[in-house]
């Protein structure tokens, strides 16, 4: 059977797996953004904490994804088999690009702009929210875009610990040596990544100033 007829025959299943996959990515990204952006804002003025936070986030990135899922299973509360563990792992992966870009975006602002903001009598929080953050938005969004694409890819491996999603087809396909099954998972995952890249890239260009 050709992959195309297989995909067409199973479009209902594939669509619901794509939806599962998408949900997994959206939840993980939402959590990663909620942690990464404020943490990035927090470490701007704190060099020691910055080294520690960026260091830890980098370490998570170096752990092979399948191993990270494996490590998390025995951990109580966050671990176990299923979606929750997968989300934790995905958040850990997505954190570094978001954290790093938030930090880089907030610190990479023209010093003359920050100097005049301070000299005009803006308070520290006014400078953060009215100057630094709006000017850093495009860079932060670039980090979110990178993280989203990584997460869409890594989320396929989440199927290994029973989190569902498009990885289910890929793992089954590998076990059964079926290209059709592998493609049924890989093609929608690639499409998701391309669409996310395009949309977030569009938003990023809209926000870029100068």
């Amino acid at each position: 059977m050709s992959p195309w007829t297989f995909i067409l025959d199973h479009r209902g299943e594939i669509l619901s797996a794509t939806l599962d996959h998408f949900t997994l990515v959206v939840i993980a990204m939402a959590i990663a953004i909620l942690i990464g952006v404020p943490l990035g804002m927090f470490i701007v003025q704190r060099p020691t904490l910055r080294t520690i936070a960026l260091g830890i986030a980098s370490i998570f990135q170096t752990i092979p994804s399948l191993a990270l899922f494996g490590f998390l299973i025995p951990i109580p509360f966050i671990g176990g088999i299923g979606k929750r563990t997968a989300i934790v792992a995905l958040v850990l992966y997505a954190l570094l690009p978001i954290l790093r870009n938030t930090y880089v975006g907030l610190t990479g602002i023209d010093p003359a702009v920050l100097e005049s903001a301070e000299a005009m009598g803006m308070t520290r929080s006014q400078i953060l929210f009215r100057v630094r953050l709006p000017l850093a938005l495009a860079v932060i969004l670039a980090g979110i875009r990178t993280a989203t694409i990584i997460t869409i890819g890594v989320a396929t491996i989440a199927a290994a610990i029973g989190a569902g999603g498009l990885g289910t087809f890929i793992f089954r396909g590998v076990a059964l040596v079926s290209d059709a099954l592998i493609l049924a998972g890989a093609i929608p995952a690639a499409l998701l990544a391309l669409i996310a890249d395009f949309l977030l890239g569009f938003l990023e260009r809209r926000l870029r100033i100068s």
Partner: peptide, 12 residues
């Protein structure tokens, strides 16, 4: 009032 070289205007 404070004016510097390159003005330091807010680009956004």
């Amino acid at each position: 009032g404070y004016v510097i070289q390159e003005a330091g205007l807010f680009p956004h």
